[in-house]
Computed example of a mutant assay.
Amino acid sequence: MGAGKSTLGRHLSQILDYPFFDSDRVIEEKTGADIPWIFDMEGEAGFRRREQEAIDELTRQNGIVLATGGGVVVTPENRDMLHDRGCVVYLWTPVDVQLARTRNDKNRPLLQTADPRAKLEALFAERDPLYRQVSHHVVSTASGNLKKVADDVLACLVSHRQG
């Protein structure tokens, strides 16, 4: 959370002239409900089932830029689909930066807790190894410099195509 996936994804889609998809927005459009409502009504397990369906559909497309929800990697099938069907760039972001970027965001159900820092630290400890497992490249977004991060990701894409 707070890595800049959606912002960077929209920016890269313009540079590459590829359509941009945010898996969370796709889920919201299909259900007619926002993510917090889905979590409230179906729990995280229900949301993850919907997310897996969306990832399967989206990763079957070529020539797109896809931003996923932060927890997409907790589902092994998602990790496999993402890794096998595209070039995955892990946007690594330290917890302090995540906390600063998400502190006023009420649309993140997992952070609606008394101690968001502890939650982010726990999520980072759980998810970082999974992100590293699924990704082809790791790029730091800690600088907050969109142009630099985009240039780094574009270099990864070139490297991936050549590899």
Rank of each mutant, 00 (worst) to 15 (best):
I15N: 09
I38H: 01
I64K: 11
G86T: 07
Q52L: 02
V88N: 08
D56P: 01
N62A: 14
L110A: 14
L82S: 07
H137A: 14
A33W: 01
G163L: 06
L146F: 05
T93S: 13
G144K: 11
P36L: 00
G70S: 04
S135N: 03
D34T: 05
M81K: 12
L12D: 10
C156D: 08
D22I: 00
D22V: 07
V88I: 02
D115H: 11
G46Q: 02
R48V: 00
D34R: 08
E53C: 09
G70Y: 02
P76D: 05
T59Y: 07
G63C: 14
R103E: 14
C156M: 05
G70H: 09
E77A: 12
N145I: 08
A54S: 04
E53N: 04
H11A: 15
G63E: 11
A45V: 08
V89M: 10
R48A: 07
Q61N: 14
D80G: 03
T31H: 10
D22K: 03
L99Q: 06
L82E: 03
K147Q: 15
R48F: 01
A150Q: 11
F124T: 15
L120K: 09
P94W: 06
T59G: 03
R25E: 15
N78C: 04
S13H: 12
H136P: 04
Q162E: 15
D105G: 01
A125Q: 14
N78I: 06
P76H: 12
G63Y: 13
E44C: 02
G46D: 02
C87K: 07
A67K: 00
Q133G: 14
K147E: 15
I64H: 13
L66A: 09
V88R: 03
N104G: 09
D22L: 08
M81L: 14
G69T: 00
V72S: 07
S23W: 03
P116A: 07
D80Y: 10
E28R: 02
N62T: 15
H137I: 05
F124C: 12
E44P: 02
D40Q: 15
G2I: 11
P116Y: 05
D34F: 06
G70W: 02
A118S: 15
H160I: 04
R117Q: 13
D80Q: 12
S13R: 13
V153L: 00
A33H: 12
I64T: 12
N104M: 07
D151C: 13
E44G: 04
F47G: 07
G163V: 09
L146H: 06
A54F: 06
S143Y: 07
K148W: 15
R79K: 02
L110V: 10
T141K: 09
E42V: 08
N145P: 08
V97W: 08
V149I: 13
P129A: 13
A155H: 12
V73T: 00
A150H: 10
V153A: 01
T141E: 03
V65F: 09
G9I: 11
Q133F: 09
H11M: 12
A100I: 02
L82H: 07
L16I: 05
P116C: 03
W37N: 13
L16A: 08
D151Q: 15
I64V: 12
I35A: 10
A118C: 05
D105Y: 01
